[in-house]
Structures are given as structure tokens and as C-alpha cells.
Computed example of a mutant assay.
Amino acid sequence: MTPHNELRLLPWSGPDGKPCFLSTDDTGGPLSRLADTTETAQLNVGQEILGHAMDVLADEEVETEELRLLARDLATALRDTLRVAVSRGHRLPALDPSTPIEANEGLRLSAAAFG
């Protein structure tokens, strides 16, 4: 295994709202597994909220307060999804900039890379 020298952005914030990071070479460790599970749950919640949003937006008589709550939930889900995307993006293998684009197109990721 190649040594891992990058910090993993975790899918939660610290008590002060600042990002939390994990430094480990063990992608199967307990904290890494908890982060993976949390990311999956956050993405699932985002999907559920998106489905709910589509229903709410189709209702022409929706109340302003419900739209406000929906906007808050969507913003939270988007924040979580972006954090997952950044975290996973940092863990993707880097492409060699000196390699022609055609050679890099053969890069294959396992399904696990996408949750």
C-alpha cells in the first residue's frame, strides 16, 4: 500500500464548527468505517430531501414556512454532499499531468469509490 500522507476530511464538524480530519493509512479502521457509514447516510438523506422538495415544489398552494424549512433542509443536505464530494475527491488517485489525456482515460475506479 502506498503511504497515505493526506488528511481525510470527515463528514462532521467539531464542536466549534470547524472541519475534522483523520490521518491514517488504515482505510478499514473503525473511524474510517464510521466516516464511510456517515457519508452514505448523509447522501441518502439528501436523496430523500430532494424527493420531498420535488413534491413540495409541485404543490401550488405550499405555505411560505414550509418552503423556508425545505430551503434550510436542502442547504444542509447540499453542505453535507459537498463535504462528501471534497473528501472523496481528495482520495482519488492523482492523474499524471505529463501523461496524454487518452492514457488517463483508462483509469477505473471501484464502485466503492462512489459509496
Results as ranks from 00 to 15, higher is better:
Ala58Phe: 09
Asn44Gly: 07
Gly29Arg: 06
Ser23Leu: 14
Phe21Leu: 08
His52Tyr: 12
Ala94Val: 13
His4Arg: 07
Glu61Lys: 06
Ser87Cys: 06
Arg88Gly: 06
Thr81Cys: 10
Leu31Gly: 02
Ala113Gln: 11
Arg88Ile: 04
Ala58Tyr: 09
Ala53Tyr: 00
Gly29Ala: 06
Gln42Leu: 14
Arg91Ala: 15
Glu66Pro: 02
Gln47Ala: 13
Thr64Trp: 10
Ala58Arg: 15
Ala58Gly: 14
Asn44Pro: 00
Leu57Asp: 10
Phe21Ala: 07
His52Arg: 15
Leu107Ser: 06
Gly106Asn: 11
Glu65Ala: 14
Gly29Trp: 05
Gly106Met: 09
Asp96Asn: 14
Ser32Met: 15
Asp80Val: 00
Leu34Ile: 08
Ala112Gln: 15
Glu39Asp: 15
Arg68Gln: 12
Asn5Gly: 02
Glu48Thr: 10
His52Gly: 05
Pro15His: 06
Arg72Asp: 13
Met1Asp: 10
Ala103Tyr: 13
Leu78Ile: 03
Gln42Tyr: 03
His4Asp: 05
Met1Trp: 05
Pro30Gly: 03
Ser110His: 15
Leu95Phe: 02
Ser23Asp: 14
Pro30Trp: 03
Gly106Glu: 11
Leu31Pro: 00
Asn104Val: 09
Val62Cys: 03
Ala111Gln: 08
Arg91Ile: 02
Ala112Cys: 12
Arg8Trp: 13
Leu9Tyr: 05
Thr2Ser: 09
Thr2Gln: 09
Leu43Pro: 00
Leu92Glu: 00
Ala113Thr: 09
Asp36Tyr: 02
Arg68Pro: 00
Pro100Ser: 10
Thr37Asp: 13
Glu48Met: 10
Arg83Tyr: 01
Leu43Phe: 01
Thr2Trp: 06
Gly51Ala: 13
Gly51Ile: 11
Val56Tyr: 04
Leu31Arg: 14
Asp55Tyr: 00
Thr27Phe: 07
Arg33Glu: 14
Ala103Glu: 14
Leu7Phe: 08
Pro11His: 04
Gly51Asp: 15
Arg8Thr: 15
Gly89Pro: 00
Asp16Gly: 12
Ala112Ile: 12
Leu57Val: 03
His90Asn: 14
Leu70Val: 09
Asp55Gln: 03
Val45Arg: 09
Arg8Cys: 07
Leu9Gln: 10
Asp25Leu: 02
Glu48Asn: 06
Arg68Asn: 08
Glu65Thr: 14
Cys20Ala: 13
Leu107Gly: 01
Ser110Gln: 15
Ala41Tyr: 09
Ala85Thr: 01
Leu74Cys: 03
Arg72Gly: 08
Ala85Phe: 02
Pro93Lys: 08
Asp25Glu: 11
Pro97Asn: 04
Leu95Ser: 07
Leu82Arg: 04
Asp59His: 04
Val62Asn: 02
Pro11Ile: 07
Ser13Val: 05
Gly89Thr: 00
Glu61Asn: 09
Thr76Glu: 12
Thr38Glu: 14
Ala111Arg: 12
Met54Pro: 00
Ala113Asp: 08
Gln47Tyr: 04
Ala77Met: 08
Gly115His: 11
Leu78His: 01
Val45Asn: 02
Pro15Asn: 06
Ser98Cys: 01
Leu78Ala: 02
Leu78Thr: 00
Ser87Ile: 04
Gln47Phe: 05
Glu63Asp: 14
Ala58Cys: 10
Leu78Ser: 01
Glu65Asn: 12
Pro19Gln: 06
Thr2Tyr: 06
Asn44Cys: 04
Asp80Thr: 01
Ala113Cys: 12
Lys18Phe: 03
Pro15Gly: 03
Glu105Val: 01
